[in-house]
Design a protein around this nucleic acid. Sequence first.
DNA 1: TGTCGCATGTAACCCGTTACATGATTTC
DNA 2: GAAATCATGTAACGGGTTACATGCGACA
Lengths: 200, 200
Amino acid sequence: MERPEAYPITYGVLGLLAFCGPMTGYDLKRMFDHILSPMWGATQSQIYKELKRMQELGWVEMQREEQESRPDRKIYSMTEAGREALAHWQTQPPTFFQLRDELLLKLLFGSFGSPEALLANIREGIRFHEQRLLAHRQNASLIPPANQPHQPSGRPDPYAAPAEPDIYFRLITRFAIALEKTYLNWLQEAQETIEQEQED
Amino acid sequence: MERPEAYPITYGVLGLLAFCGPMTGYDLKRMFDHILSPMWGATQSQIYKELKRMQELGWVEMQREEQESRPDRKIYSMTEAGREALAHWQTQPPTFFQLRDELLLKLLFGSFGSPEALLANIREGIRFHEQRLLAHRQNASLIPPANQPHQPSGRPDPYAAPAEPDIYFRLITRFAIALEKTYLNWLQEAQETIEQEQED
DNA sequence: TGTCGCATGTAACCCGTTACATGATTTC
DNA sequence: GAAATCATGTAACGGGTTACATGCGACA
């Protein structure tokens, strides 16, 4: 079997370019963290790697915008071949699903540590997921993805006026919110259970 | 900064040895898939790598059990140093949380594909997560983790008589079930939304 | 006859992470 | 004066995946 020419993260970056219009690698990272955080993670380096890969595949084009006293901005945009690759990928069944959560891992083996440490970690987890819930709720009302062509003078603005958000984006946001609520409810339950376990 | 001596997956394997008692690498893989599937993934190779790592750290010991006409069974067990490492890890705050889900990724960029392909992927996702829900429900009633010493003649049996399952294991199972239910509910909602979108 | 379970791994690859490097501008 | 933002990356490392290799016994 040959190695695949592209991976889920490749299509994540490609899809963002399709979704939000041309952008720099730097902007892609910020968009990625906002929009794809419920289903994938990416570092800045990885995004630059994927851009290079897609340039070689002919899925994206780069256009240089000169700047003084700063590195030139390199604006990437999806090509026709990129659009075809994205559409073809859509027809294939997904193969990857995985949650990796160190808090759950520590909780599972809770009997080998102290309840105090566990409870501290749970409280921290509650704060963390409350932040995520808040972020997704703000996403829901603030980020309007639109297939606008690139505005040469400005950068993509995640806080632009809400134009009519894509139905798939709305669905994903609903999922993200539902997931965080489920997680938070369960954390609260776990906290109470462990506190009760302590009093005996 | 130095590289860490161990990673979440290391503690996952170590915790399993603490939780279920001594086992072979082969058995660890099966246990991992049953018990840790809600919070981490592991391949067989990775488990062998972690066993090697932990042997060098002195966290586990290996005991060879000879067999005819099959490779010798190598039974790994946690050492006292391993128990200390597990306990110390419990006191540190968790740092990693990430969901990676190709189905969600395809759905987010659904507007660049056909609704038919999307719906097919969603139906497949429903089957997949129904399976997971079922597996967690069976886990809940069937797998009783106990800190039993290793029985030299037999292998760890996931279907042994239910002794009184660990409260943390019960909590995790409840989480896994709640997560799958949330996911399934949302998939159904997404399916209906996209079907309605088609009729216009 | 062929696939599945048991049981050991190794080799190759690369995604993903961490750390490093540069440097002007703005904000505290 | 320090830290954050903008904006580009590269280098090194290793976790994680896929594929390969071996070989017996049981079961369809």
